[in-house]
């Protein structure tokens, strides 16, 4: 019982971190109809950003996140202007491989600038553990989880409660109709993309005190996050959050029961099964998988 609870807690904490990454990816897809293969590279930039700010100035990593996230946002604007805007309405091969190219570029830019060394951020509270009801909960993990969930909730509030958010939803539903209603679609694209990758950067900053930092770190996250957003329904924000928690749980449970390799294998098999049986995911609009390529 105690063990099951511990796995539940570990899984939920992990899933909460995935959620912030997944929300951005699913937003970009829902609004721009672009699958952003470079999404986890923005997370990697956030991780390195926090590492360097902490390493050079000694600033607390969680405060460093506040410095780094706006920088990633700016970089997102540049990427949107130079690459993403040009892929809108282009053939599918352009949409898929432009962001894949960006991913390869960013990974190797990091490799060139900062070498393949594995780095980590350590703080006074790195090893601190809370023990409520005999469960072990890592303090930095809990902080990161809480901030990530608050950020995801904030994004959701902006999306549903503000005029700007409603404009974003309108573009996601029908880009031509939204343009006819006087919405500047290109502006919506710009802000959706930059805010989503800034969220990825923030997530990277939040996990910098938890996991090691290296140029290819994105690879181990991006595919997991794809699984999450498809499971939740590409384009659905609440779906992404729920699926992230679910995948976190599956990873923790299967990892404990069968080992890490089986954990990975299990959710890819679930992923394939979902793609085949219910490609719109659990919260996605029906038919999205058919029209998405258009």
């Amino acid at each position: 019982m105690q063990l099951a609870l511990q796995i539940l807690v570990n899984g939920l904490l992990l899933g909460g971190l995935y959620a912030l990454l997944a929300v951005g990816l699913t937003l970009i897809f829902g609004v721009l109809r672009v699958v952003n293969f470079a999404h986890a590279e923005f997370m990697m930039l956030g991780m390195f950003g926090v590492y360097w700010v902490w390493h050079l100035t000694g600033l607390d990593p969680y405060l460093a996140v506040l410095v780094v996230t706006p920088l990633v946002l700016l970089f997102g604007i540049v990427c949107d202007r130079l690459i993403i805007q040009r892929t809108i309405g282009a053939p599918e091969v352009t949409v898929v491989f432009a962001t894949l190219g960006l991913s390869i570029f960013l990974q190797n830019a990091a490799l060139t600038l900062w070498t393949a060394d594995i780095r980590s951020v350590t703080t006074a509270y790195s090893g601190m553990v809370l023990t409520p009801f005999g469960l072990r909960v890592s303090v930095p993990m809990l902080i990161s989880f809480t901030v990530a969930m608050l950020a995801a909730a904030g994004l959701w509030l902006v999306l549903t409660r503000t005029l700007y958010g409603k404009a974003i939803q309108a573009v996601a539903q029908n880009r031509e109709a939204a343009a006819l209603m006087g919405i500047d679609v290109r502006r919506i694209y710009l802000w959706t993309f930059s805010v989503a990758v800034a969220a990825a950067g923030a997530m990277g900053g939040l996990i910098a005190p938890l996991f090691t930092v290296y140029p290819r770190v994105g690879i181990s996250y991006i595919v997991t996050v794809f699984v999450i957003v498809v499971l939740g329904g590409l384009g659905s924000v609440p779906g992404a959050v729920l699926a992230a928690l679910l995948i976190g749980l599956i990873e923790a449970a299967a990892g404990f029961l069968f080992g890490a390799a089986w954990a990975e294998l299990s959710y890819f098999l679930i992923f394939l099964a979902v793609l085949i049986a219910r490609p719109q995911g659990f919260f996605g609009r029906r038919g999205a998988e058919v029209f998405a390529g258009r």
């Binding site: 897809f29 699958v35 599918e92 949409v95 898929v96 595919v223 794809f226 699984v227 498809v230 590409l234 390799a261 089986w262 990975e264 294998l265 890819f268 098999l269 992923f271 394939l272 793609l275 085949i276 490609p279 998988e289 058919v290 029209f291 998405a292 390529g293 258009r294």
Partner: peptide, 28 residues
């Protein structure tokens, strides 16, 4: 046969997942 109905990015992601399943199998 199983990716038959999938279009656009969904097809790409399904083939990607298939490739990764085989890679995990080869490693483990």
């Amino acid at each position: 046969a199983i990716t038959l109905r999938l279009r656009g990015p969904f097809f790409v992601l399904a083939t990607l997942a298939f490739g990764i399943v085989v890679h995990i199998a080869a490693v483990n």
